[in-house]
Write a protein that binds this DNA or RNA. Sequence first.
DNA 1: CGATTAAAGGACAATCTTGTCCTTTTTTGG
DNA 2: CCAAAAAAGGACAAGATTGTCCTTTAATCG
Lengths: 162, 162
Amino acid sequence: MLSQTVEYALRAAVYLANQAPQARTTEQIAEVTKVPQAYLSKVMQNLAKAGIVRSQRGIHGGFLLARSSAELTILEVVNAVDPVQRIQTCPLGIAAHGSNLCPLHRRLDLALAAVENAFGKTTLADVLSEPTRSVPLCGMTIPAGAACIPLDLASPAPGNAT
Amino acid sequence: MLSQTVEYALRAAVYLANQAPQARTTEQIAEVTKVPQAYLSKVMQNLAKAGIVRSQRGIHGGFLLARSSAELTILEVVNAVDPVQRIQTCPLGIAAHGSNLCPLHRRLDLALAAVENAFGKTTLADVLSEPTRSVPLCGMTIPAGAACIPLDLASPAPGNAT
DNA sequence: CGATTAAAGGACAATCTTGTCCTTTTTTGG
DNA sequence: CCAAAAAAGGACAAGATTGTCCTTTAATCG
């Protein structure tokens, strides 16, 4: 239900939030978040256009959050790449009589509204500071026992980095 | 966020719920719900495989709800054609350590759970009996003022029907 | 039985999403 | 100024979703 692109954008955003205020290259982000690099590049462009991140070319360039992680919500990230589309009018043919949805579509829209609301209330900082032992973005090879590892431990391949 | 196929399946299901216990042909359903007929045919096949509707070939055949509209939830319809995919494991690479999601994916899954829950609680009967003047499935040419018309008024083109 | 009706199913086309590759532009450091 | 680094952007390929068309199978009625 959430697109692949949304998933990727969120991974990147959370990673950048964790690494703030430092810039990270597409290559670095791709490696840690396990997103296909060339595709991630496009996703990052969208995040940049939407003002979520700022991009910087050249040496020591990369991407960094445009605003504080406490001000950036998951919803903004989602909407930057694949907007949550609320149902404005009954989707059958004509019907654009304001916000007068039929029961079916009102229910559907209510669910979308709930998602929108939950996402809008959650900032990237919230995600990072969640009171739990598992930390955002998981899945790397780890000591077995912990399900996730902190992002800042997930350094982009020791040795070949800058 | 909800696929086109889900939208179509729900329209058809609500229509059949309204018309129960009578069978309706793909042609009739397609006309009222404004779904491309040939595609609807595939969608109905999925609903039939999932036991949501029963199909009947030949003269006086068509589709009808397999169970009472009070027992069929929106969720079942959705899951029959395009399942709500909860996040079971952190989607990064390996990581299948049970249900130990990182904060990001826990949040996302929570939103999915809310949708699943809302859909699971809503039966087709609920949708039909909503206390409102607008009635499920709308969008036909109407007296202007009402945003929707009852399904049973939306007869499949008077004149060329059976 | 035979004609008609309608779903089932296969093949295929159009479109959108996702993913890859390569060139161009900008920035920085020496 | 020059070389290297890194984003921007274009072109294109693979895959999934959506949509169309036609043939086959099953059911009903006369």
